[in-house]
Amino acid sequence: MIDLASWLTYLAACIAVVIVPGPTVTVIIANSMRHGARAGLMNVAGTQAGIAVMVAILAFGFSAIVALLGEAFFWLKLLGAAYLIWLGIKLWRSDGTLGNSDAAKATRNWFWQGFIVIWSNPKALFFFGALIPQFIDPTGSAVMQTLLLGGTFMVVATFLDSMYALAAGRTGLLLSRRNVRLVEIFGGTCLVGGGLWMALSRR
């Protein structure tokens, strides 16, 4: 199994990867500031569901699926980038009002936003595909070690991303409608910028 020193090194890597804002954190913050912390927390739930699928694929050795993902990565990345840009444009065109009359539908949308963005995020795909195998002890159970390492990442990501959501949600509650409109423009610009960065980043 994984020794403590290796696990602590991996834990530090998880924190470093998660704490740096990327497309996922941008979506969480933008939704939390406009719709409240609940929206951002549903984004977090969606990202964790996506991560759980990634970990399962890696742990149980679905080599054909992994190979297919590698071939489809370019198109997956472009779809994710287009989705971020679309979300940003929606924020640009918003009117500065908070809330949503269809709370159940909005909750589902926020969840799936998180799921889609994490699956189109090169950082997450590279992390699981390249970093985790380096910490696997070949003398132990690869499945159990992968689940442990993947679970560690999920705990770190859930905690830190939730902190982003709660902090941004609290800030959003203090905003006037005019300030909300400024936040929407800023958040939309960040999302569009993140989408362009994702589309132009190298594989």
Results as ranks from 00 to 15, higher is better:
Val180Thr: 10
Ala64Gln: 06
Leu175Arg: 10
Gly172Arg: 00
Gly80Asn: 02
Ile185Leu: 15
Ser141Ile: 09
Pro23Val: 02
Pro133Leu: 05
Gly61Lys: 09
Phe115Trp: 12
Thr24Asn: 10
Met54Ile: 12
Ser176Glu: 15
Ile132Trp: 00
Leu174Val: 12
Gly70Val: 04
Ala157His: 14
Ala45Ser: 15
Ser201Phe: 00
Asp3Thr: 07
Ala124His: 01
Leu174Ser: 15
Ala56Trp: 04
Leu191Lys: 00
Thr171Glu: 13
Gly194Asn: 11
Ala30Phe: 02
Val155Asn: 09
Asn43Met: 07
Leu182Ala: 13
Ala124Phe: 01
Ala81Trp: 03
Gln48Ile: 07
Leu200Gly: 10
Met163Thr: 14
Thr139Lys: 08
Ile28Ala: 09
Val17Ala: 12
Lys77Val: 07
Leu200Asp: 14
Asn31Val: 13
Gly70Leu: 03
Asp161Ala: 00
Ser63Asn: 10
Leu149Thr: 13
Phe62His: 08
Ala124Met: 07
Met154Tyr: 03
Leu58Asp: 02
Gln48Asp: 03
Gly80Pro: 06
Ala104Arg: 06
Ile85Arg: 01
Ser94Thr: 13
Phe62Ile: 11
Val55Thr: 10
Pro138Asn: 03
Leu68Cys: 11
Ala49Leu: 06
Met144Asn: 05
Leu148Cys: 11
Thr146Pro: 15
Val183Gln: 04
Leu84Pro: 05
